[in-house]
Design a binder for these strands. Structure first.
Ligand SMILES: NC(=O)c1ccc[n+]([C@@H]2O[C@H](COP(=O)([O-])OP(=O)(O)OC[C@H]3O[C@@H](n4cnc5c(N)ncnc54)[C@H](O)[C@@H]3O)[C@@H](O)[C@H]2O)c1
Ligand SMILES: NC(=O)c1ccc[n+]([C@@H]2O[C@H](COP(=O)([O-])OP(=O)(O)OC[C@H]3O[C@@H](n4cnc5c(N)ncnc54)[C@H](O)[C@@H]3O)[C@@H](O)[C@H]2O)c1
Lengths: 231, 231
DNA sequence: ACGCCCTTGTGAAAGCACGCACAAAGTGGG
DNA sequence: CCCACTTTGTGCGTGCTTTCACAAGGGCGT
């Protein structure tokens, strides 16, 4: 027995790595569908759009699953990443706010394919409650607690207007949900131990606008000098 | 020319800061609507969900817009951040792929309010082309180049199935678009100078699942031991 | 069986990002 | 006019992330 365990990988995977594992997973699944049996870090990195050294370091946090001189076994790596991400079990998801976005999410097929099950759709509007969306009846928001417990909801998705989001979030947390995905443009306040991730369209557009402006700034002088005609 | 300029703040704002400016902006607009004339870094940071030192350092990259002993003038700071992000001009956006998600995006009111104008909706499906969505007629994908040039599209949004995304992206780039927002679950390949941002639902869920699994792992033993009855 | 060649896994270094803590700067009261 | 108080702007230490570069490891051809 080794008295002082070298601890080749302890239970801490860097957050930046976790965020990239799903990208690798998708790239691997693409390779798998095309029948590729093994892949080198160089090739996989190219498909995933990252630096190969980064890819190798990321994977090294999971263990030594590669073969030197050959690369990684695609099937095996898919399994290992899936296991690490917790995709070998099914997660129940509840969506609150069945408007434009909520309906799109509910109708989106990409959930079920990867271990996520839409367990329930909830809304506050009586005109919406009872509608059938993607094969599920929309339930009233008042049943949230029952739904969370009954369906063992692990992840709550919030697609309500901004004003309602914090309230819905509080109810999710109260009912025991510790992972929330928020589409409403507000900063949610949650107690420690609860994870919130946000998807914010406006922020993405504004970041793009910032860089777009920079590009024009840099060349504006050149362009203005050269051009006599309006843009 | 001065070889070593002191350069109090050069034209480089850290990417992490850029990503937070939209959050600050939204927080400030919220304060503005409630009539708050000035705000301290402490208070604004609380609303924006960040550390106050980080907020101050972020804002310091734009310039010295605060008043010691008082705080920041809300209106003025809104203006400065908007200007820095390039929101004082209007940006034309074209959405390709008018399915579940594309329709939700088109119907989303949050665009126009902040300097983004939906200039065109495009799709390849003859059954969809001609539909009126959010007051715009869906145009055929073949007109993409005309639309980009005619409407001066600065940002292309891709909401097609994954298989079509790279092709649409190439056409955007070819037509001169240098900012792309991608909702399809693929890594887009673009030449240097083109910015791509992606919004990927599955990745967010998988990251949540990872942490959720960790939480259970840690406490699973405890819980299983202790629990016979529900809480 | 052996050695060549390819690819992994990982030290080490450089680059960012974060947050503390405090001097500088400005306000408002006396 | 001056002082006490508040809050900004930032220097600095710390930790995380990325990237380079290469030794160690393993397959494959001969
Ligand atoms: N549509 C988009 O493309 C888009 C893009 C980015 C962000 N968002 C954000 O996503 C959210 C939803 O957008 P949307 O376009 O679907 O809005 P929407 O108005 O179409 O839908 C909102 C739904 O939430 C329901 N709702 C309201 N209050 C509720 C409550 N307290 N509990 C439960 N349900 C409640 C409403 O009945 C409605 O069905 C908004 O916060 C919006 O800012 C939407
Ligand atoms: N719906 C969601 O909530 C959701 C969530 C996450 C990701 N996504 C992704 O967003 C994308 C769109 O999802 P969706 O649910 O709206 O799909 P959808 O099938 O409802 O819509 C796709 C649309 O794209 C059009 N299209 C196909 N090929 C095209 C081409 N070459 N040029 C132009 N248009 C083309 C189709 O005609 C269709 O109208 C997909 O890549 C999906 O994976 C969707």
């Amino acid at each position: 027995m080794t008295p002082r365990t070298p601890r080749p990988r302890e239970r801490g995977i860097p957050e930046a790595t976790v965020a990239r594992l799903p990208v690798y997973l998708r790239a691997l699944q693409g390779l798998n569908e095309r029948g590729t049996p093994t892949v080198s870090s160089e090739d996989l990195a190219a498909v995933a759009g990252v630096n190969s050294a980064k890819l190798r370091k990321d994977l090294s946090h999971l263990g030594s699953y590669g073969t030197r001189g050959v690369g990684y076994d695609v099937d095996y790596l898919i399994y290992q990443i899936s296991r690490e991400l917790g995709l070998t079990q099914d997660w129940s998801v509840a969506i609150v706010g069945i408007g434009n976005l909520g309906r799109a999410l509910a109708n989106y097929g990409g959930f079920g394919t990867r271990g996520f099950r839409i367990a329930a759709l909830l809304d506050a509007d009586a005109a919406v409650v009872g509608d059938r969306v993607a094969g599920l009846a929309v339930r009233h928001i008042d049943t949230l607690e029952d739904v969370v417990r009954g369906e063992d909801v692990a992840i709550g998705v919030i697609a309500t207007p901004a004003a309602a989001a914090q309230g819905v979030c509080d109810r999710f947390v109260e009912a025991g949900v510790t992972s929330v995905l928020n589409f409403a443009p507000v900063v949610l306040n949650v107690p420690p131990g609860v994870d919130v991730r946000k998807v914010d369209l406006s922020i993405e557009l504004q970041i793009l606008a910032f860089h777009e402006q920079r590009k024009s700034d840099g060349h504006a002088a050149d362009r203005a000098e050269r051009t006599g005609s309006p843009t």
